[in-house]
Design a protein around this nucleic acid. Sequence first.
DNA 1: ATGAAAGCGCTAACAC
DNA 2: GTGTTAGCGCTTTCAT
Lengths: 346, 346
Amino acid sequence: MKSASAGPPTLRHVAQASQVSESTVSKIVNRTKRFSPEVERRVQAAVAELGYTPNPHARSVITGRSRTIGVVVADVLNPHFALLIKGVGSVARARGYTVLLTDSDEDSDLEAELLGTLIPRVDGLIVAPRLEAQVVAQFARLKPLALTARPSDLARRQALGEALTFGVDGFQTGQMIGHYLAQGGHRHVSYLHLAQADDDRLRGLEAALGGQGIRCTVHRSAEPSIEGGLRAATAMLLGEDRPDAVVTYNDLMALGVLAEARKFGFEVPRDFSLVGVDDIPYAALTSPPLTTVRTYSREIGVQLAEALLDRIEGVDRLAPTPPTPQLMVRGSSAPRQYEAAPVGRG
Amino acid sequence: MKSASAGPPTLRHVAQASQVSESTVSKIVNRTKRFSPEVERRVQAAVAELGYTPNPHARSVITGRSRTIGVVVADVLNPHFALLIKGVGSVARARGYTVLLTDSDEDSDLEAELLGTLIPRVDGLIVAPRLEAQVVAQFARLKPLALTARPSDLARRQALGEALTFGVDGFQTGQMIGHYLAQGGHRHVSYLHLAQADDDRLRGLEAALGGQGIRCTVHRSAEPSIEGGLRAATAMLLGEDRPDAVVTYNDLMALGVLAEARKFGFEVPRDFSLVGVDDIPYAALTSPPLTTVRTYSREIGVQLAEALLDRIEGVDRLAPTPPTPQLMVRGSSAPRQYEAAPVGRG
DNA sequence: ATGAAAGCGCTAACAC
DNA sequence: GTGTTAGCGCTTTCAT
């Protein structure tokens, strides 16, 4: 029975109860040194009796480490990020870390604010950045950072400095979709591009389409969400020159486009093929089910966390190879049957 | 320019740079006392110059508070929880708190473990518990807890002790669905029940159906997810005595049932009506769109956070009234046309 | 208006 | 093996 006292029990209480010094208790609790069975028993008993839990803040003040990592995603509601979070969480837990998770609501100012409050509390951060590379690089000098996405062009400019960047190759993703659509005989592709966050996919797509003389129209949206897709659909589908394929930055946007297209009376894939990115769980459940590129969201989270924790702990392991994106062909896309469809091959 | 030094700048560095004592800096940084304009200016300048940020851990050791709240949800991938998190996050940010978020993966043992690691780090917790009430009550004695769902029976037993419990009324939710189906002439309802977490909805449903002599079969699942729905669908739909309505614990399960039903060749709502709970964003996008009960997930998060922070800060505000659940009738449900459908008017 | 001193709960040298 | 000592970075009386 713990006698009346303010707050929770401290090391001192345990030390008094078990008749040893505070440092002995500390060493036993932390398994940092061994003692005689008798003493260990007494201390363990006192710990159990009092319900002692170490104060992690006090610990952090001394060690300078918090065994906590921060995660900043743009939108927890996006299953891509939710899965990434789950991946991070499982690794963190297995390695004895706690996760401080925040949602920037797709707002870069808020993202910066969140990074600022998180940094003094964590040992490292996993970020799905919407912020400009230079700003992110600034933060990367304060604490180890692991970033999703592989911004090849930015990395080339070394703008990201120390940060680990890691994710499925965006260029390759775009390219896969481009090749697939080209081989399906499509002639006019519209891409729904996420403003300021997504150049690689677009470049990959254009690279694959360009060689085949296929037209690629780019539409922009700032919202990589269902609503973003809904809102962009009008402009993409109701113009005079309707595309025979629509590709979106992610699956959520594709779902929005699909819903809105149905409202306008379009039928997919009869009127146009629709391709998303991520393969979120809902993608397989729509009708028609969505053709998409699987980006292995959970796995990316796992690899980011492993890499970050290795870095934090000074482990010098080889960086893992990111998964290869995989095209999941489903019912929302179909080959075009024009008079003489030129079938491209690579 | 900060000269070479280990770690980030501390109060001491600021004090030295501005030629005042540490306590003066502390008071200025915390706005806890005013000083001469001259001193304030010098200190602010030094803070900016050195890029000083207070060490939140050191602060917490002294004050015993961390301006951090913990959130434990069963599954971030469930949009219901993702929205709740967003609600919590917006309030927390507005009131100057950071959120420590964790995902228990629908596992009560893990939930207990997470609560244990979170409690010493936070000022209070928001939990969507799968854990038994007694265990939760145990944790509630250590730190303020705010719980989703309103477990009327448990509250009656006072098992939850100090915890604030808060959410859309489950009994009422079940009742609304029951009345709606009864009025639609349904005669045999199957309910997909979430084992151990959901008695109120079932009781409300049964209460509404019982009076009308409508049969209610209960199926159990431990997974309130798309997969849970997929897996349960077989048992619910392929028995000899097929229901004319299926109600699920939540929308994710309903999506699973819908997908699996389609695979078996059933057509909804022709073969049976389907009703979910939550009104997640995807519910309106399926075909047919899902009839469901809106539970105002985000709003619940907001109210939970407000209530918890009020409690933490000793503010004695009146507890807000939880939103009333609202039935969203969509295409997945339709009246039955039997010879002489008895139309209940409960 | 400013500062000196004590100490929050804990760890880490270094003694013995 | 065990204890002593000295802090970590900060807040908080209490003097001046």
